Computed example of a mutant assay.
Amino acid sequence: MTDQMIRPTESPSTGELVRRLSEDVSRLVRGELRLAKAEMTQKGKRAGRGAGLFGGAGAMALYGGAALVAAAILALALVLPGWASALVIGVLLLIVAAVLGVFGKGQVSRATPPTPGRAIHGIKTDLDAATPHKSYR
């Protein structure tokens, strides 16, 4: 019989166990990073396709709206001259645009400055409460 068959197998040293653990953790982290990269690539492709479809939907909605405007002009042209019906519909559209613009500007004004004011105030309050104050005599 050989020496190895007689002797029981030796347990790995602590240094060997630490080395194996380090290699396994590194391999695990690299695998997780590869998985995350593949997942983000797949999600990015889906998001790109979705954005393209949204863009196409927006373009079709614009054409549909233009067709409805043309239909409104033609319908009004039954009682007014063509140029007058186009003028009336155009003015109505500009009024709607102005109203939407005013409301939109108000919303943007309320959103500026783009800092979370209440959250900042809350953090300052928390810091003041957590910081020990020196008593002045």
Score class of each variant (00 low, 15 high):
22 S>H: 04
2 T>V: 04
88 V>M: 08
22 S>W: 00
67 A>R: 11
110 R>G: 10
62 L>M: 12
117 G>I: 08
53 L>Q: 15
98 A>I: 14
67 A>V: 12
22 S>I: 01
54 F>V: 09
45 K>P: 03
15 G>L: 13
64 G>A: 10
111 A>W: 04
82 G>D: 06
56 G>R: 15
8 P>G: 05
69 V>N: 04
36 A>G: 07
133 H>I: 09
134 K>E: 12
47 A>F: 07
131 T>P: 04
10 E>T: 12
1 M>P: 10
1 M>W: 09
55 G>C: 06
123 I>C: 01
57 A>V: 13
5 M>Q: 10
84 A>Q: 05
132 P>I: 08
106 G>F: 03
15 G>H: 05
41 T>M: 01
50 G>K: 06
63 Y>I: 13
64 G>V: 03
31 G>V: 01
100 L>H: 05
27 R>M: 08
11 S>C: 02
34 R>W: 08
95 I>G: 07
94 L>C: 06
37 K>G: 02
124 K>P: 01
35 L>S: 13
63 Y>N: 06
107 Q>V: 09
112 T>V: 10
22 S>M: 00
42 Q>T: 14
28 L>P: 02
58 G>D: 11
12 P>M: 15
45 K>G: 13
115 T>V: 14
78 L>S: 09
100 L>N: 09
135 S>E: 14
131 T>F: 05
33 L>D: 12
120 I>K: 05
102 V>S: 00
47 A>M: 11
29 V>S: 01
4 Q>K: 13
57 A>P: 01
114 P>M: 06
41 T>Y: 00
82 G>P: 15
79 V>L: 00
5 M>H: 04
107 Q>F: 04
32 E>C: 02
127 L>P: 02
48 G>N: 11
12 P>I: 15
74 L>S: 13
136 Y>C: 09
75 A>T: 11
131 T>E: 11
74 L>H: 09
52 G>H: 14
84 A>S: 06
87 L>V: 08
59 A>V: 15
104 G>I: 03
91 V>M: 10
34 R>K: 11
7 R>W: 03
18 V>Y: 04
49 R>V: 08
89 I>L: 03
